[in-house]
Design a protein around this nucleic acid. Sequence first.
DNA 1: CTCGTAGAGTGTTACGTATAACGTGACCCC
DNA 2: GGGGTCACGTTATACGTAACACTCTACGAG
Lengths: 346, 346
Amino acid sequence: MARNSTRPTSRDVARAAGVSQAAVSLVFGDKWRGRVSETTAERVRAAARRLGYRPNLAARNLRLGRTRTVLLVVPALTTEFFGGVYTGAARVAAEHGFGLVLYPSPEGVGPARDPFPSARAALDGVIASSMAAEALTALRGDELPLVMLDSDPQGSPGATTVNLDIAAGMRAVAGHLLGLGHRRFLHLAADVPSWTFEVRARELAAHLGGIPGAELRTARAPLSIEGAVAAARTALTAPGPRPTALVCDDDLLAAGACKAARRLGLRVPEDLSVTGVDDLGLASALEPELTTVRLDAELFGERGMQALLAVLEGRPPAVGDIPVELVVRGSTAPPGAAGNEGGHTP
Amino acid sequence: MARNSTRPTSRDVARAAGVSQAAVSLVFGDKWRGRVSETTAERVRAAARRLGYRPNLAARNLRLGRTRTVLLVVPALTTEFFGGVYTGAARVAAEHGFGLVLYPSPEGVGPARDPFPSARAALDGVIASSMAAEALTALRGDELPLVMLDSDPQGSPGATTVNLDIAAGMRAVAGHLLGLGHRRFLHLAADVPSWTFEVRARELAAHLGGIPGAELRTARAPLSIEGAVAAARTALTAPGPRPTALVCDDDLLAAGACKAARRLGLRVPEDLSVTGVDDLGLASALEPELTTVRLDAELFGERGMQALLAVLEGRPPAVGDIPVELVVRGSTAPPGAAGNEGGHTP
DNA sequence: CTCGTAGAGTGTTACGTATAACGTGACCCC
DNA sequence: GGGGTCACGTTATACGTAACACTCTACGAG
């Protein structure tokens, strides 16, 4: 069994089946209907099976000039959010015969290094989160169709944008907290340069800043629980009247904020209402469970992939932001709502 | 500027620089030292820059028969753990000029569908988590070098295995809880067919089952917070004496278990000690913070990639499991430790 | 003066596939 | 019975690159 270690090619299959290489190609492509008889096709398939033939995809890609494979560029996978985006995008991709590979831009790797030494070999297009901006500079040179997720529609010339209606989410948060009676707000903002966080800040400013008697301060934290703990501690112990509501850009930040509040002896929500964004599993595991803006990550991924497929096929991509939903849970309450607890008002 | 829309090739660059295509190839490969003069090389590079030339990687891959790209197959990205694995593996890969793409096996997608329509075009090897077993069946046909993460060393013929020393972690948990005085244990096991979870169960049985007077029960839950809530509720309300310590296969399960305990009016750790595995961000965001077995995901990824590189280069891969660390936090205490709380013993 | 060697390149071929262009019988219809 | 489809294939070529096998000049050693 000194079989040659090199893999069989379509020519080998052709020889074994007694047909031409072209016929094998036709059978393994999918346009052999009316060109090759069913019996011949089956003979080819049998020979291929016998030899263990698998088409050489590098050769196919070279020949076709396209690959039916798409790259999804996301920031570091520190939460399950982008896992959901991937799942949704991959589902739509699979329905259209496309493959999807994921490129998480590594933390702390600068834009200088080429992130895709060779993987780029097989890409028809790219979907990229605006939070992974650094990795994108390396893609500028390739003129691949590009869909940007959560990115400034005006700021990405030549790219299609697909966005969550995060502005509506922040308006809902503002409305919810105002309705509960809060007036002193702290915005715990993600210290990440990304359009989606700019929108959150802008929207909060517009809908809390304009209210008579309302006050909005801002603190910044890196996008991690530990970072949020530190930033929230600093902000909550700052001089002046303490805020009664803490609006966080993200559930991770909210989790850190809750932890910091606990350490400072503040009760959530009696002394401090806290909100997040994302609705991670974390949000409902916390005590109290987190009021948050639920983002449908899978739908986000689906819409992103649909937009890219539209671009690839020359169709106009669908427009319209993806709706989000405010989920009210236990971490928000009227300010000073300790009454039902038994007079713990100092 | 009616430029031809097709991208420039090495031949175009050669023409523009007044050299042969072979010379361009030599310059863009990296073995032109002693074959092409520095001045000529610079002329080639200048022409390439002017034309916006980028090597066609599909052609290169076809010609070379290898790609310096590796695939990492992981289960659905429901926690940040595999993000860490990716980060570590990608770092090592980059140091060796390799690229790394990530393939999360989509939830609920059976093994029938080919998960890599075309991405497989450019793969030199595969690193796969044993938890993503389903996706692996589709890879059987390709005879790619394979490194398995957290997989039975005996059960994967032809594959190299890299494992966390999860057995030591479970022994540490058992020792910790026994030392605190616990004797009635419940193991909340992940209902996922994977070697790593089998090891946890086996190790717990060996080190808790053998103790005189000790009792170990087992409940199973899908690997999610919601699943754990339901399973823990059922197990904790079962007839018979309630366990005092709940050993969970994973932090997600532990988070769900804590939530279920709270809903049943049980306090953690006074009425029930809870432990997890992973040390996710979640673990330290919970109240109380979770005692857990910390797994170094990045190191795991690094070692996996190093093993694959060794296989690719014909070197023997390093052996030895990766150490883990028990992190004791607030979710474990001696059984019935409610004394300092003020006599809440019913 | 001849030989060997190193430097600086070039011509050609092969990687494995997909497809346009080209037969070739057979059948059918007027 | 001639021409027009059809059904079923084959031949030949191109995709863009890397590498083998050359050529040619210069130069120092023997």
